[in-house]
Design a protein around this nucleic acid. Structure first.
Length: 423
RNA sequence: GGAGAGGUGGCAGAGCGGUUUAAUGCGGCGGUCUUGAAAACCGUUGUCCGUGCAAGCGGACCGGGGGUUCGAAUCCCCCCCUCUCCGCCA
């Protein structure tokens, strides 16, 4: 959520920069200023009346003590009028504040200046590419066929137990999952991220904190009986660790990494590109979360991008990095880099990581602040990224590394898998 | 699931209708003393909103919401949460 003061002080540039999202937010932003003005006026008025009321009450108290009953009764009548007036004003104030908040929820984060203009993923800017695109022969199989051939992922069994999008990993497939999780966690810890294990269910307040609620409600699984949500990503519980927290400047950088399963309803998703591991309702992901000083957050973003690079390089997967254009940029993000690995049998790029700087957009809702050198409280910057999401990494590993003798594991992963080939 | 206790500032803990501008202690910060430190002593120390260049001023906040009252941390109602014991249990 953007800060009203920020909008007020930077109105023109906010309007201008939001245009990158292919929508004109000027009418909404104008409404924000209007409602804010109204709110402040109401607040001032109601405070003044309240002050008079407080003063009168004190006087009445004193009069009673001095036995001046009659004088006290006269003042009592007066407070009655004032009370009605403040009731009106505070009702109005509440209404205006609510209206203002609801409008603020509809305004996405202001894109960073480096964000390219564009409408869809077609317009994303490729900023880096690494590795050689493998050339497979005609007999090469997509990962869902390989999964069956080696009996490592059973989609049908998952469908029987739960439903589509909940695969069962078996044998070397299950082992590979565990290996990747450990590999990622070890690498992240080595890069200074401290490992945490958060709950996999979150309450309403946490959902609001990171912005899944109220608008993306339908994307999460909801347990009605206890009013809890299954996490769509570890970002939600881990970032919420710092909700309503005031950090000290010397606490920076805050770096956490967490492995969790992720649950997504993916309501409304359809099409040919959701086969196999491409899109699931439950999948595993290792996440990195950072809280930073505003002056350091873009440096931190670059560092995160560099770190994720090394993960994919060590897995020997060809990949590219794209800077998301305004049209593809997430609601809460100011700048996002997506990592995409090449899936050799499907012959397409698959997103395996998304690394973003949210600046103060999340922190504002979370009330995540720090004390600066002058002991002033300021909003911190939050960032996060996948390091990494498993299913599509597995898809690419299986497809790219298939040989007549089996699927070859990248060398650096072998101490984790305990085998060199899936066969 | 059953029974009970309780939610007050960074923490501990008092207050149970009007000198509460929330006592007191601990912690934090500043100072005196000291070569330095500790101890001791003195001072200071919550959050949010509005207003103001600022000093300041005003308002709200004692788990959340509503009510009674001229006046509520304190009384009443509803909700949430935590703890203890019992039951069940990895």
């Amino acid at each position: 959520m953007l800060q009203v003061n920020f909008i007020r002080e930077n109105f023109d540039s906010v309007v201008e920069r939001l245009k990158k999202r292919n929508k004109d937010f000027e009418p909404l932003l104008k409404k924000v200023l209007e409602l804010d003005e109204k709110r402040r006026q109401l607040k001032t008025d109601s405070d003044q009346i309240q002050a008079r009321l407080n003063k009168l009450s004190k006087e009445i108290g004193n009069l009673f003590k001095q036995g001046e009953r009659k004088k006290a009764e006269i003042l009592k009548v007066k407070t009655g009028e004032l009370k009605n007036k403040t009731k009106e004003l505070s009702a109005e104030l509440e209404k205006v504040t609510k209206e203002l908040t609801e409008i603020l929820w509809q305004i996405p984060n202001v894109p960073h200046e480096s964000v390219p203009t564009g409408k869809s993923e077609e317009d994303n800017e490729v900023v880096y590419q690494w590795g050689e695109i493998p050339r497979l022969d005609n007999k090469a199989l997509p990962h869902w066929d390989l999964a069956k051939k080696y009996d490592i992922i059973d989609f049908e069994l998952g469908t029987k137990i739960t439903g589509a999008g909940f695969p069962v990993y078996k044998n070397q497939g299950a082992r590979l999952q565990r290996a990747l999780i450990n590999f990622f966690l070890d690498r992240n810890t080595r890069a200074g991220y401290s490992e945490v294990q958060p709950p996999h269910l979150i309450n309403e307040a946490s959902g609001f904190g990171t912005g899944q609620l109220p608008d993306k409600e339908g994307q999460m699984y909801h347990i009605e009986k206890d009013n809890l949500y299954l996490i769509p990503t570890a970002e939600v519980p881990v970032t919420n660790f710092y909700r309503d927290v005031i950090l000290d400047e010397k606490d920076f950088p805050v770096k956490n990494t967490a492995y969790t399963p992720c649950f997504r309803r993916e309501a409304g998703s359809w099409g040919a590109h959701v086969r196999g591991l491409n899109r699931l309702h439950q999948f595993d992901k290792v996440e990195i979360v950072r809280i930073e000083h505003p002056d350091k957050s873009y440096e931190a973003l670059d560092e995160m991008v560099e770190h994720v690079k090394t993960l994919l390089q060590d897995l020997e997967l060809p990949f590219r990095i794209v800077r998301l254009c305004g049209g593809d940029l997430g609601f809460t993000s100011a700048l996002t880099y997506d990592f995409e690995v090449w899936s050799a049998a499907q012959k397409r790029w698959l997103e395996v990581s998304s690394v973003s700087n949210f600046e103060t957009f999340q922190a504002n809702r979370l009330k995540l602040r720090f004390r600066d050198k002058h002991n002033k409280k300021r909003l911190a910057h939050t960032l996060n990224g996948s390091a990494l999401a498993l299913p599509r990494v597995v898809a690419a590993l299986l497809e790219n590394n298939q040989t007549p003798e089996g699927i070859v594991m990248p060398e650096k992963l072998r101490t984790y898998t305990g085998f060199e080939k899936i066969q």
